[in-house]
Structure formats: C-alpha cells, structure tokens
Computed example of a mutant assay.
Amino acid sequence: MAISFLPMVLFPLPPSLFVTVMSIISCLSLANGGYMETKGKHMQYSKFFSVADSKKSKDQEIKLSSRSGMLLLYTPAFLVGHVSFAIFHNRDLRFIMVISVLTIHFFKRVLEVLLVHKYSGSMALDAAISISLSYTISTATMIYAQYLSQSFDEPAMDLKYIGTTLFLIGITGNFYHHYILSNLRKKGDSGYRIPKGGLFNLVICPHYLFEIIQFVGVACICQTVYSFSFTLGTAFYLMGRSYATREWYILKFGDKFHKDVKALVPYIF
C-alpha cells in the first residue's frame, strides 16, 4: 500500500548513480549520527561535548572561535544555493522554489550566527570543515536531483504549496526559539540556564522540532527521493540530539529541570 502510494507523491529516482547512492548514504549517516548522540558521541560543537573528548589530540587541533566556525559551517551551502540561480538556466517553478528555500535557510543561519547567537567556546577546524562539507554536498545534491527531475512528469499529488507553508512555519518557529536561547545569556555570561518561553515549557528542543517541520516542507516542495531520504535522516538525527540534550539538562540541573518537559515532541517524546 505504502509503496504503491509513493509514485503519487514522488518523482521517479533519476538515472544518476550519484543521486541514488547519496539518497542512501544521507539517510543512514544522519540516522546513525542521531543514534550516536544518544550514546554520548557528540559533535564537537555541541555544548555537551565532553571535556574528556575535547582533550583528545588537543595539541594537534587548530581551533576557531565559535562564531567563525559556525560561519564556516553554513556559508558554503548558502553560496551553493545562491550560485545555482546563475548555473541552472532551464528552470521550472518547483526548481526555483527549491533553490530559493535552501538559499533562504542557510542565509537565515548565517544571519543568526552574525546577529543572534551568543558564544562562549571554540570549534576544531577539522570538525567545522567536515560538517561544512556535509551541508554543502547535501544542498548541492538536493538541487541537482531536482534539476534532473524536471524531465519527469509531475507527481499526481502536488505538495509544493503545502511544503511552502510548512517551510515558513518551520523557519519562523526555529528563529523564534533561537532568539529565546540567545537572550538567556547576559553580556559576559558564559553559563547555561534552563530555557523558558515559547514551546520550551513543553520540550527542551523546540528549535529542532521546527527545523524538522522546515525540512519536511522542503521535501514536500522537492518531492524527490533524495529530499525525503535526507529529511528522514535529519529527523532521526535531531531526535537523537534532542534526547541527548534533555539528558544533559537533567544531569546538569537535577531537580531544577522539570521532568514533564519532553525532548522534542510535546507530551510524547
């Protein structure tokens, strides 16, 4: 039943070995990343990246300020989206929408790095480069898969306008909760506090919840196998990361952290 439904909502997989392989790798690698987060294997820009792990090969690591590291994470992917407008000339409406939302997504992240987020640490250069490459390659692959899909007939169910609505809800909710997080710290303060306001009273990672909604919106605009594979992997990764975040808050704040506050989905998870 589910398999027979897929041709109604997805373009066929394009005749590209690269896109096929990346559809599998993106989903599995992101899902594995989420699983590793639940096991305490955190990315090196995480606030709960352990002190013991951070001491490994410390003398050999090249460090960036957190702001510079985060800019390195997002700027190349933003440029991929921006340059795609000039590279691809035969574009239908859906393809233009895909490039637009991906470019807006990373432009918003760059603006948050410059104007919203507050920082207290550093980031290893090799970690920043590897994460940046991941964002850049996944963005380029999503755009390339969409370009190839223009030669196919449109899916029977057109989800791009539903996707646009979900994208706008997701990016707005994500920004709002990032703004709340940024206001937790006063000038010169490097400590952590339990966030309050918005959906933080129900879940500890509402910004991740809205990021998932945002990428579900992107997948609905694309309606390609790769976009849905990437979104599924992203959802699993952020589930794992939100679970790890909740465990970190419980460990750090103990009884001060309200146990009814879930990780990602209000009242459920």
Rank of each mutant, 00 (worst) to 15 (best):
K262L: 12
A2D: 14
L238H: 01
E211L: 08
V19I: 13
P266W: 02
P76K: 10
L28H: 12
H117T: 05
C205P: 00
Y161A: 07
G197T: 11
L111N: 11
M123K: 07
T20I: 10
I131T: 11
I221E: 01
D53E: 13
S26P: 03
K118Y: 04
M8F: 15
F85N: 13
A235Q: 04
W248T: 08
K196M: 14
E211V: 03
I143Y: 07
M1S: 14
S130H: 12
S134C: 11
F228S: 06
H258A: 15
G69H: 04
S122H: 12
T245Y: 10
Y161D: 04
A128Q: 05
I250S: 07
R193Q: 15
K256D: 14
R109I: 03
S229A: 15
S65F: 06
S130Q: 11
L125H: 02
I87T: 07
S151M: 14
M142Y: 05
D158C: 12
T38S: 12
L64W: 00
M1F: 14
L73T: 08
K56D: 12
G170H: 06
R185Y: 10
F88Y: 15
I169L: 11
I131E: 05
Y45N: 11
T165L: 15
R241Q: 09
K256R: 13
M8G: 00
Y237D: 01
S26Q: 03
S190P: 00
G198E: 08
L166V: 10
S242L: 04
L79Y: 08
L102P: 01
Y161C: 09
K118A: 02
I213W: 04
M123I: 15
C222E: 02
D153P: 00
V98C: 07
C222N: 02
Y237L: 05
S138E: 07
P266E: 03
G81L: 00
G170A: 09
T172H: 13
M22T: 06
K47G: 02
L184C: 06
S50G: 13
V265F: 13
S66R: 08
L264N: 09
K108A: 00
F106I: 06
M70Y: 05
S122V: 11
I99C: 12
F175N: 11
Y35L: 09
N174V: 09
D153V: 09
F106T: 01
L166F: 14
V265T: 07
L13M: 15
S138Q: 10
I87N: 01
K256S: 11
Q223K: 10
H82D: 08
A145I: 02
G217E: 02
S227R: 02
H178L: 06
G121D: 12
P14V: 05
T75S: 10
F215A: 01
A145Y: 01
F5L: 15
H42Y: 13
A124D: 03
Y237M: 10
Y208E: 05
I204N: 14
L159V: 05
T139A: 02
G40S: 13
H178Y: 08
Q214D: 08
I180W: 06
A31L: 10
L102Q: 04
R94D: 04
K41Q: 13
T231L: 03
S68R: 08
I169S: 03
S132H: 05
P15N: 14
S132G: 06
V9H: 07
T75E: 01
